[in-house]
Structure formats: structure tokens, C-alpha cells
């Protein structure tokens, strides 16, 4: 009796997740499997003939200088994630206590996250304008004769993108941190205070370790989100100047939808997948050392 009830229940469960699973199957699993197949072909969109070419795409990728440039740029782009996490933790700690305009400030910090990416891109382009933009105007005003060219030189453009990205993610990370800080039992802080801990020590020894699961979450989601994102770069620099801001995801996009080289793009996609995989596995292994649940 009970058993058949269970059976019916589980059947019902499948019916409930059915529509969702169908979506995942149609729009994720099948395309992913298909792209795995494409990796071994010379398929070009709209081209009538497709041949199986074995590992040629992978060989081409490993011999492609641009692939390595994109890989390097991707790692520079990823720098934004830890920086943004540390900054947002500091902001969250500051805003966790009662300060003036606490609510307004929280809203202000969160604003970038809910603003349209293209609008953000255009505003930053104006700010970073090398000869007459406000940022370099300020830098010249305080006596720096040769401020950086920001987006307009190959050496600085990726770091300029990093600054935008840190600013963009700050609000989201901060909100998550604020929630985590609320969860820290008040007694622990009080006990520390009674023991004579300084504010810095409380932050370092109590708050930071206790929010470490949050940090871990933000790190993993942040890295994955960043490694996949290129919208902001496409809007601002299209990968230039030169190829100084071409990150892997943008490189894939260009190969697939600009040159219609679907097979080659599929191969790079899988390389990107492997990189994300390695990152995630490393973090899971590493978390035992510093994440305290």
C-alpha cells in the first residue's frame, strides 16, 4: 500500500519536472552533445558540405597565437573576481554597522548590478576617454602628467575592463555579504570584545572566517560568470584595440558568429569548458583549507 503510494508520488514527481527536463534536454544537453560532435568537423554555418576532420580543430587551436592571447586576457579578466570580493567584503562590513545614509549607500552600491550593461559600457567609455574624459582630467589635475590611456592602449585596456567589472559586481557581492554578516551570532562578537579584541581583529578572526562559505560561493559563481561573460567587452572594445581585450568567450563568439567557423568555435568552447572544470575542481579541493561551515 505504502509502497505503491510512494511509486505514484515519484511518478508524479517526474511529471512535475518533465517540462523543465525537456527544456534542459532540448536547449542544453542536446546542443552540448552536438557541439562535441562539431568539434571534430569543419562545419561552417551555411556551407553545404561538412567533413569529419578528426583532431584538426584542436591542433589548429593549439597552434593559434590568438588563442593564447585570449587565454591570457581571460586570466587578467578573472583578476577582477577576487578584487571585487575583497572590496565588497570591506564595503559590506562598513555598511553593516549603523552609518549615516546606510540605506541610501546600500542602494547606491547595488545600482550598477541592475543597470543595463550597454548603458554602463557607454558611461565608462566617456569616463575613460583619454584626452578629455573626467578620470584623466582629474589625474592631470592632481599632477600626473601622463595618465594611462585606459581603454585606448593595448597595455591598459584589459585592466580598464577589470575596473569596470569590479565596479559592476561589487553591489551583488555586497548584498550577499550583508546577508551573511547578519547571520553571525552577536555573542561571538561580544565575547571577542570582552576579551579585548580590536575591530580589525574581529573582522579578521571572526567575521572573515564565518562568512567563508559565502566567499567560496561568490568566488565560484564569480569566476564562472566572468569567464563566460563578454557582453561588456563586445559593447566597449569589440576585443580591441589590437586584440588586447579579446577574451576566450569573445574569441568563441567571433569565430562562430562572425566567421561562421562553427567547428573551430566548438573546439574552443570545449577548451573553455575544461578550464572552468579545472577551476571548479581546484576550488572544491582547496576549500577544505579555508572554508568553515
Amino acid at each position: 500500500m505504502n509502497k505503491s503510494w510512494m511509486k505514484r508520488q515519484s511518478r508524479l514527481g517526474y511529471i512535475f519536472i518533465g517540462p523543465n527536463m525537456l527544456g534542459v534536454l532540448l536547449f542544453f544537453i542536446i546542443p552540448a552533445a552536438y557541439s562535441f560532435y562539431l568539434m571534430f568537423t569543419d562545419y561552417k554555418f551555411m556551407s553545404p558540405e561538412t567533413h569529419f576532420i578528426g583532431l584538426a580543430n584542436i591542433r589548429r587551436m593549439l597552434g593559434d597565437e590568438l588563442f593564447y592571447v585570449a587565454l591570457k586576457n581571460t586570466f587578467v579578466f578573472l583578476l577582477a573576481v577576487p578584487i571585487s570580493i575583497v572590496l565588497s567584503f570591506i564595503v559590506a562590513v562598513a555598511l553593516n554597522k549603523s552609518v549615516y545614509f546606510q540605506k541610501t549607500l546600500r542602494a547606491l552600491y547595488f545600482m550598477p548590478y541592475i543597470t543595463s550593461g550597454v548603458a554602463v559600457a557607454f558611461v565608462w567609455m566617456l569616463l575613460f576617454q583619454p584626452s578629455s574624459g573626467p578620470i584623466n582630467g582629474f589625474l592631470k589635475g592632481i599632477g600626473i602628467a601622463h595618465p594611462p590611456g585606459w581603454l585606448s592602449t593595448t597595455g591598459s585596456s584589459m585592466y580598464a575592463i577589470d575596473i569596470i567589472w569590479v565596479w559592476f559586481m561589487l553591489g551583488y557581492n555586497m548584498i550577499i555579504y550583508l546577508a551573511a554578516l547578519q547571520e553571525i551570532p552577536e555573542e561571538l562578537m561580544e565575547a571577542a570584545k570582552i576579551d579585548g579584541a580590536r575591530p580589525w581583529q574581529i573582522i579578521r578572526r571572526i567575521m572573515w572566517p564565518l562568512v567563508s562559505p559565502t566567499t567560496f560561493l561568490l568566488l565560484i559563481t564569480g569566476l564562472i560568470m566572468t569567464i563566460k561573460n563578454f557582453g561588456i567587452i563586445q559593447a566597449i572594445t569589440q576585443g580591441g584595440p589590437g586584440n588586447s581585450t579579446t577574451v576566450l568567450s569573445l574569441f568563441i563568439y567571433q569565430n562562430a558568429f562572425r566567421y561562421y567557423e562553427m567547428g573551430y568555435a566548438a573546439a574552443i568552447s570545449w577548451a573553455l569548458f575544461v578550464i572552468i572544470m579545472i577551476f571548479t575542481v581546484l576550488q572544491w579541493l582547496g576549500q577544505k583549507r579555508w572554508v568553515h561551515y
Partner: peptide, 10 residues
């Protein structure tokens, strides 16, 4: 105008 400036400030 320098090309870098022209491109990145559209």
C-alpha cells in the same frame, strides 16, 4: 585623432 582614442570613445 589617434586611432585608439577614436575607436574606444566611438
Amino acid at each position: 585623432p589617434p586611432l585608439g582614442e577614436q575607436l574606444t570613445s566611438k
